[in-house]
Design a protein around this nucleic acid. Structure first.
Length: 422
RNA sequence: GGCCCUAUCGUCUAGCCUGGUCUAGGACAGGUGGUUCUCAGCCAUCAGACAGGGGUUCAAAUCCCCUUGGGGCUACCA
């Protein structure tokens, strides 16, 4: 039975790098029918905080990385660390230095086997002895980690590359304790645009931030799964179930991967489009918390469902529909409104639209097309200025649909305002 | 400094283990053309990489060595 764990320290928000580690552990557990354990490594009581801990838990839940056991807290397990250290002390494998207990790492060359990197050979004569228990009685990381992994019967330790050089120390502790070490898989780090590991960067963006930026959890999971792993079949847009099905430690690669927002955005758009219109509307309501008629909102959602890539973009479009003050994009105004015949065209359009009843997409289009014929102009001569006048932007969904959804009052008011200002 | 990890398009990657099928494949981003009005989408199309040098071999992106670049560890942080 595969047993893996994710062991964050609540000394900061969950960032992309640690989430990816959690994800790979979770994927491995789920793909193997194993157990995923959550362990909170809160031994650094000065830097740990409940606020971070709660957010970590909330983020994991939001992403759908559900755990089977835990959360366990290291601060509640100090007795176990101390008694194990005491045992090593009695066996002469560790020694005291003041109040601290130090493990004597045997002078020997050791080979560790890593599922991602293969065999790694290290010379333990080169490294210092290892603190097991600090002077204040709390356990040091490399010891608490080993004791917990033994106690929780962890079979595979999947963690970041940066722990490779801890592995030989930890293996030495396993040996002293007479316990067979688990298998190790060290996964590559995620890098920022400056190629520095995200986990070490000050101000690394947290998962909560991505949530607020309008990314879907399944999109984040999908994108993150592609950093340091590939299914090998050229298929990148996948559901979480597909990823679980295809995941294998064997296909994890060794090099750090740069986090690329463009691709996340693309994959998020794909996941948004995969949603049914009801699902999308529900997510939109949850994200925007709109103060408007639900039926209307559903129509609006259906209109923008195919063309937004993040929920923030969706919310911006919503703002354009709802607000009384239209924000005019200067470039769009210059290009489409500051032209010779524009104000006369818009003025006639306004009159015609005002008389339309009912104010439906069909009627709007029919009337506009007729006007285009009448004035002997290109359809774009009317459509583009109309769009800019009403939405403030050169880009929107189909202009007739937009008008119908906005409603006659708003359309006419906005046209009038533009006409008096130019 | 010492030790360890690592190196394919701008980015994520396939291929590397088991050398020939690789004039190196896909995706994102970018360019161009097409598509009811823009955008998105879709379709077509273009551009773009085996870090460098030695070896091994009939044959190397693939195996070995060196150099260079990047990263990690070297805490009574985790």
């Amino acid at each position: 039975m595969v047993r893996v764990r994710f062991a964050p320290s609540p000394t900061g928000y969950l960032h992309i790098g640690s989430v990816r580690t959690a994800l790979f552990n979770w994927l491995y557990a789920r793909s193997q029918g194993g157990v995923f354990i959550l362990r909170i490594e809160d031994t650094d009581q000065k830097r740990s905080s409940d606020v971070y801990m709660e957010e970590i838990i909330a983020d994991l839940k939001w992403l759908g990385l559900n755990w089977d056991e835990g959360p366990f807290f290291q601060t509640k397990r100090f007795d176990m660390y101390r008694s194990n250290a005491q045992k090593l002390l009695e066996q002469g494998l560790a020694y005291k230095d003041g109040e601290a207990i130090i493990f004597k790492i045997p002078d020997e060359k050791v080979k560790i086997y890593d599922l991602v990197h293969g065999e790694i050979e290290v010379d333990n004569t080169l490294i210092d002895d290892l603190v097991l228990i600090k002077s204040d009685g709390s356990p040091a990381y490399n010891f608490a980690c080993v004791i917990d992994d033994i106690d929780m019967q962890i079979t595979h330790v999947i963690r970041g590359d940066d722990h490779i050089s801890n592995t030989n120390k930890q293996v030495a502790v396993y040996n002293a304790l007479g316990v067979k070490p688990p298998k190790f898989a060290h996964i590559p780090l995620i890098l920022g645009p400056d190629k520095a590991p995200l986990s070490k960067r000050f101000g690394a963006v947290s998962i909560t931030d991505y949530r607020q930026m309008g990314y879907l959890p399944q999109a984040l999971v999908n994108y993150l799964s592609l950093l340091g792993w590939a299914p090998g079949d050229n298929k990148e847009f996948m559901s979480v179930e597909e990823i679980v099905k295809k995941f294998s430690l064997k296909r994890i690669n060794k090099t750090g991967a740069e986090f690329n927002l463009d691709k996340l955005r693309w994959i998020n758009g794909e996941h948004i489009r995969k949603l049914t219109s009801d699902e999308f509307a529900a997510i939109g309501i949850d994200f925007i918390k709109p103060d408007c008629d639900e039926k209307w909102f559903k129509k609006f959602a259906a209109l923008y469902h195919p063309r937004v890539k993040t929920l923030i973009e969706f919310r911006e479009e919503f703002g354009i529909f709802m607000s009384d003050e239209v924000q005019y994009n200067q470039e769009a105004v210059e290009k489409f409104l500051k032209k010779d015949k524009v104000s006369s065209i818009l003025s006639i359009t306004r009159e015609r639209l005002e008389k339309l009843d009912p104010f439906t997409q069909e009627n709007i289009e029919k009337s506009s097309r007729a006007l285009i014929e009448e004035l002997k102009i290109e359809s774009s001569d009317l459509i583009h200025p109309l769009r800019v006048a009403v939405t403030g932007k050169a880009v929107s969904a189909g202009v007739f649909e937009v008008l119908a959804l906005l409603g006659k009052d708003k359309v006419v008011t906005r046209l009038e305002r533009v006409l008096t200002q130019t």
